[in-house]
Design a protein around this nucleic acid. Structure first.
Lengths: 216, 216
DNA sequence: CAACAATTGTGAAATTAATCACGACATTCT
DNA sequence: AGAATGTCGTGATTAATTTCACAATTGTTG
């Protein structure tokens, strides 16, 4: 909606900044420099200043940034003023971990409902979230645009098709499958096995030099 | 230890390629083109060819790549020939999800042991992995260089210090905390709340155009 | 109030990654 | 065998991101 001039790399760091600013605020700090923030979030201070600068001049030279002001600004920018509802598909161990995570605290995101193939799990609550049988997807899931997918890979393609028909626009995919979706749907993949193997590969082939660069 | 000329972006994709090649092999396919692979893993075919080319000429012009040959090559490159042992710290829902995941199948990575603060969980097995109390970290965890950290943020800093003393070299960190570690230790962060919020942000501010670009 | 210290915001440079586009060669077809 | 087709490997280009480095400005101190 806004000026989508903000680089993707910057956009990905915004939630991170937001949470640490929140921490600082709770600690009663009213002022912070890019250097301090850098040490906390492990992002180069020049990168932080550059990131902030895309939104205009948010700080004061020789002083730093006012925590409360910055927080207020990012709250608006990150749409923290209105709650975003999401659905969770697949109530296994990973899915259950999400149900216990309190996204409301910092993120203003709410898991509104969950689905599972297991009839025994249906009609229960976990962490206050109602769980339905997957057969009821079409009747229960209205108005939800974002889903978290924590199901076995074998079911991914089928469920994804149904989600697309329901009109969702974003998927956070924890399945190893690379989903095929229409172009107007955004999929972010988090592949746990790939992440672990990549870490192992880096450790063996990229001896860390002076300053260890931390990725994600 | 090899030529560390391979771009990091390429290195991160290797595990992904490896798994899909494995799938193809199981399906009995003996030949694959960069175009086919591209459709499966959702990475541009030119990028795939470029990635492969860092390792030399692995394919044949006008033909494509021999699946079995490529697999064998990557098996060596990704050190799939020897098992990598890792430890899991924190047997909550997320940790348990890892314990049930079979990393041996494709990755030749084995979770050798797990630790938790809960005494009730100790001395049990989950998915064949022994669970110890966290107090026994120093006595039980020998020779392990990589850990998966799935504990509450509040405990992260303390446990990390102990892990560092134990001589680990890599951490896959699911904690929201940004860990402070010596420069010779590599930390990969996977922050579930950040990932979810970033997805929501992208959906609201980056209307997808023609070709949907898929990130992770 | 002047000197000092701190810190931003940003051009410019450097680095890293993705993409284009095409010559060369292997395979397959007729 | 010759023509047509498919596909790789890569030089060159473009795009994205990070980092350097410093003038400008503010707050602080004596």
């Amino acid at each position: 909606m806004d000026q989508n001039k903000i680089p993707q790399a910057t956009a990905k760091r915004l939630p991170l900044y937001y949470r640490f600013l929140n921490n600082l605020n709770h600690q009663g700090k009213s002022r912070v420099s890019s250097k301090e923030l850098s040490e906390a979030v492990k992002v180069d201070s020049a990168t932080i200043r550059r990131d902030f600068s895309y939104f205009g001049a948010l700080g004061k030279k020789g002083y730093g940034y006012n925590v409360e002001y910055l927080l207020g600004f990012f709250r608006k920018t990150l749409d923290q003023d209105e709650v975003t509802d999401v659905a969770l598909i697949g109530v296994g161990n990973l899915g259950t971990a999400f149900l216990h995570y309190n996204f409301m605290k910092n993120n203003n995101i709410r898991i509104k409902m969950a689905f599972d193939t297991d009839k025994d799990k249906a009609d229960a609550d976990i962490g206050g979230v109602p769980i339905y049988h997957i057969d009821d997807l079409e009747t229960e899931m209205k108005e939800i645009k974002v889903v978290i997918l924590t199901i076995p890979a074998s079911e991914a393609e089928g469920i994804t098709g149904r989600l697309v028909k329901q009109g969702i626009t974003g998927i956070l995919n924890f399945t190893p499958a690379r989903l095929t979706v229409p172009h107007y749907i955004r999929v972010h993949h988090i592949d746990l096995a790939v992440e672990l193997q990549a870490l192992v590969y880096f450790l063996k082939h990229y001896p860390l030099e002076e300053k260890g660069e931390l990725n994600s």
